Amino acid sequence: DRIFMTRTEALEFLLKAHQTAVDKIGHPSHKQTPADHAAIEALDRLLLDVRARRVDQFQINASAAQIIVTD
């Protein structure tokens, strides 16, 4: 599946995904793992790359739809 978004929409989408990941590892019942921190770092890099126009398409994980940034 493909989803087309403007750059602004894609950045909002990534910010929400980032916040969800941060909230998940901050929850008291969740045991933090290196994979959790790696996922947040990957989202940080992706946010910067989309914002800087170095990336025009991405996929958060293998089961997610491919996001295509349109400007």
Rank of each mutant, 00 (worst) to 15 (best):
T8Y: 10
R7F: 09
R51E: 11
G26F: 15
A21G: 02
A35L: 08
L15Y: 13
I67E: 00
H37T: 14
L47D: 00
E12D: 11
S29K: 08
T33D: 12
V50D: 00
D49P: 00
F13H: 05
Q66G: 03
V69M: 06
L14T: 00
E12V: 08
D1W: 03
I67Q: 00
L47E: 01
M5C: 03
P34R: 08
I67C: 02
D71N: 06
A21E: 08
F4T: 05
K16V: 07
D36N: 06
G26I: 10
I3V: 10
T33F: 06
H37A: 12
P28Q: 09
D1S: 03
P28W: 02
H18S: 04
E41G: 07
L48P: 01
E12R: 13
R54D: 03
T6H: 03
Q19G: 05
M5R: 01
G26K: 15
Q57L: 07
L14W: 00
K31M: 13
R54Q: 05
L14K: 00
K31T: 13
D71I: 14
A42R: 14
L11Q: 02
R2A: 09
F4M: 06
L15V: 10
T33E: 10
T70M: 14
Q32Y: 12
V69H: 01
F58S: 00
L11M: 10
R54P: 01
R45Y: 03
A64G: 14
D49S: 04
D23L: 05
V50G: 00
F4R: 05
T70I: 15
L48F: 06
L11V: 10
L43D: 00
N61H: 13
I3N: 02
A17R: 04
Q57S: 14
V69N: 01
L46G: 00
F13A: 04
H30E: 08
N61T: 12
A65P: 14
F58D: 00
R45W: 03
T70F: 10
I60T: 04
H27M: 13
F58W: 02
V55R: 05
L47C: 04
A52Y: 14
Q57H: 14
I60M: 08
K24E: 09
F13E: 03
D36W: 06
A62H: 10
F13W: 12
A64R: 07
R53L: 09
A65M: 11
H18N: 02
K16H: 08
V22N: 05
R54N: 06
D56T: 15
A65F: 11
A52S: 11
A10L: 02
D23P: 02
Q32K: 13
D1N: 03
I68M: 06
V55H: 01
G26Y: 14
R54L: 11
L46S: 00
I40S: 02
T8W: 13
I60E: 02
A35M: 09
S63M: 12
D23C: 08
F4E: 04
A62Y: 08
L47I: 15
A52E: 14
V22G: 03
Q57T: 14
I25F: 10
A10H: 07
A62N: 12
L15G: 06
H27A: 12
Q66Y: 15
R2T: 12
A21F: 13
A52R: 09
K31V: 14
L15A: 12
A38H: 07
V69W: 02
M5G: 00
A35P: 05
F58N: 00
R51Q: 12
R45E: 04
A65Y: 13
E41A: 14
R51P: 02
M5N: 00
K24A: 11
V55W: 01
D36H: 05
T20M: 15
I60A: 03
Q66R: 13
T70N: 08
I68Q: 05
T20K: 14
P28D: 12
L47K: 02
L43H: 00
I3R: 06
L47T: 04
A38T: 07
H18M: 15
H27F: 08
D49M: 12
A52Q: 12
I68A: 03
L11R: 01
I40G: 02
A10W: 01
T8R: 14
Q32F: 13
A38Y: 11
F58V: 01
A39D: 10
D36M: 08
V55L: 08
T8V: 14
P28I: 09
M5L: 07
V55F: 02
D56H: 15
K31E: 13
L48A: 13
K16L: 11
I25W: 06
Q66M: 15
K31N: 13
L46M: 04
R54S: 05
H27Y: 08
A35T: 07
E9G: 04
P34Q: 11
L15D: 04
V50L: 05
A65I: 13
I60Y: 04
V22C: 05
H37Q: 13
T8F: 09
A62T: 11
L46D: 00
F58Y: 02
R7S: 03
I68C: 05
A10Y: 01
T33Q: 10
D23H: 08
E12I: 12
L14N: 00
T33L: 07
R51T: 08
L48H: 15
A21Q: 08
Q32S: 14
V22R: 10
